[in-house]
Amino acid sequence: MAELRFEDVTVRFGSGRRALTAVDGVQLTVPSGGVVGLVGESGSGKSTLARAAVGLTPLAGGRILLDGVPVRPSAGRRPMQMVFQDPYSSLDPRMRIGDSVAEALPRRGPEAVTGSARRAEVARLLELVDIDPARAGHYPAQLSGGQRQRVALARALAGRPDVIIADEITSGLDVSIQGTVLNLVRDLQRQLGMSLLFISHNLAVVRYVASSIAVMYLGRIVEHGPTDQVLNDPQHPYTRDLLAAVPDTGGAGMLDEPHPDPRVRAVADAEPADPHAPPPGCRYHPRCPIGPLVLADREICRITEPSTDHRHHAACHFATAKDTAEIGSTS
């Protein structure tokens, strides 16, 4: 149980003209025992941030702190574990699932599990994720996608982590199976009190699991706040756009009549920005329905980068100011 803090984290790939800043000065805190949902479109840098946290991708700047102590990738106990998106690729096809879980058990240090205790511990972990321990000798090919994802979760738990990072863990699963994995993650998180960084592109799923939501766009966090507040009173136009795009069974909305203003329609059809050449000023301005392409007097968005000194730390020049937040919401 520990607090995970990203301080001004930057990740860069490549160099020279082809350089790509996938994560650009991210500030984010996952409180001890809390669940932060990270949403954003593909290419926004959310998976890169996750991989940086567990040491799979080197940082170009900033620090990642666990309870105030910088995280150092080293052998031995890893206080942060990750569950990957694709359960068909995250388990070694030639290794029995019991061995995969056992491999992540600590071998040295105060929490080392050795000898016959390892088997018992593997059985306990499999049971924890609702897999019959008798199946420890099975290969991943004999399991369904949902079962594999639960084994991957058991492997992450084997390392006795303080923080778990779940990267799109249900997006590769069928709807009927997705629920079992989500229920399990929620139960385990509450039961074990882990801190959890839950990454997903699906707002409905994030809403169900996370107590607070961070929205990422082109390598930056553009809004961050408690789940119900962000969803009920989104400050950043990108968050509003995401919310409007969520398909809703029975509800109307997604295919509403196009906006009467052609400028708004043009912006709504705009292409996502190229991360290799992010636009100047506010990175969202070429797609923003309240930005300079729609409202002529908002040239500031093209020139100046917005501060996050707003409600929900929204990076928008026209978001509600922080101090008036309480007054504004009650009116």
Binding site: L56, A75, R78, S89, S90, D92, E103, A104
Partner: peptide, 14 residues
Amino acid sequence: ERDYIAAARVAGVG
């Protein structure tokens, strides 16, 4: 490049 190698690295396997 497979995820299981990344998973093993995250688990602290040498």
